[in-house]
Nucleic acid binder design. Structure first.
Lengths: 192, 192
DNA sequence: CCTACCGATCGGTAGG
DNA sequence: CCTACCGATCGGTAGG
């Protein structure tokens, strides 16, 4: 058993914040999870709040990276599909950071909380832009749909995916993406 | 200023649990909100956990009442519309109880948490049944859609409505219901 | 990473 | 609904 690294501490904190919530996680419990005392954690980090900031930031960065990558997929419907597939991957493969990002932001100090809200708005804007562009270029069938409302609907579905979807269930991730595109009236099963 | 009633305590607790979370709400803060000391709350209630159980139960009862009322609206698409409209009403008009029900259930003791999960499943089943029946009787257009997945999508949207919808915005509640029905491919704008 | 500790705050009770 | 209090636990520090 070698010593814990700062990375170990952040990862374990994410797991506990996501599972029990920030306020319900004590530094002593977090230490026990890593096999050391609560007070020993302070050789790795400055404060409990610092840990929350770092975990939330990791969640935000994952979504941002997905949004950036979606630009390579094209525009309109093609970009929207990349955004949806990317979001599903982030949510299912990084549950701890994502749940902390989505549910524990209210435990952040005002400055960081405002920053997170801003990051979420920027990310949501990517969905609105892709939907709006898809209406204009004809790659999305129902061009009458309001991009703002549609983006809210799609993101509501995406953020809740981890509550019911399982990789070992009847639906593959690709099929899930198609279901959401079809559900949203954004795709009809045709190519291109 | 007359004395506080037990009802006052439960209502204020719901507000604070929804806003700051159960663990971040102290009995002293709750007392201050009502103009009394934390210790004085115990003449109204047995424990902090009792308060959480009561607030969560109120949220569950509101959804259950909506599901019961939806039976009078008919079956298939008509019942689904009543379920969606009812859910939106509950979410927007009882935010404190609903947010506590949806987000703070993990702070419940194991017994009550299991009970809440069971109530949620029963409620979700009403959506599945209405969607399934609508596929069979032809009142829902895309009969190929899986009722389980569709119900998950619809409930994801409904539970997040309070995060972005405003009664003073461009969309009325009735229009919101129509948008969700259309989004879900469950309605085409035609009568019946 | 531990020992030893700090002041603050927690949920809750006895008794009025 | 208050006074006076309880033991437990909290985040965090000094010093090694």
């Amino acid at each position: 058993m070698s010593r814990n690294t700062r990375e170990d501490v952040v990862v374990a904190a994410g797991r506990m914040f996501a599972t029990h919530g920030y306020d319900a996680t004590s530094m002593r419990e977090l230490g026990r999870e890593l096999g050391l005392l609560g007070s020993s954690l302070y050789s790795h980090i400055g404060s409990k709040q610092d840990l929350l900031v770092e975990v939330v930031h990791r969640g935000a960065a994952l979504f941002q990276a997905s949004a950036d990558a979606s630009l390579d997929a094209g525009a309109g419907r093609a970009r929207l599909r990349a955004l949806i597939a990317g979001h599903i991957g982030v949510v299912l493969d990084h549950r701890d950071e994502v749940q902390t990002f989505l549910n524990e932001a209210r435990a952040l100090d005002a400055t960081h909380r405002a920053q997170v809200l801003h990051e979420r708005n920027t990310y949501e804007q990517a969905f609105r832009n892709a939907i709006g562009a898809g209406g204009t270029d004809g790659s999305i069938i129902d061009a009458e749909r309001d991009p703002k409302t549609t983006a809210s609907f799609v993101l509501s579905i995406l953020n809740a995916v981890d509550r019911w979807y399982s990789d070992t269930g009847p639906l593959s991730r690709d099929q899930l993406v198609d279901e959401i595109m079809a559900f949203a009236g954004l795709w009809e099963g045709a190519e291109q």
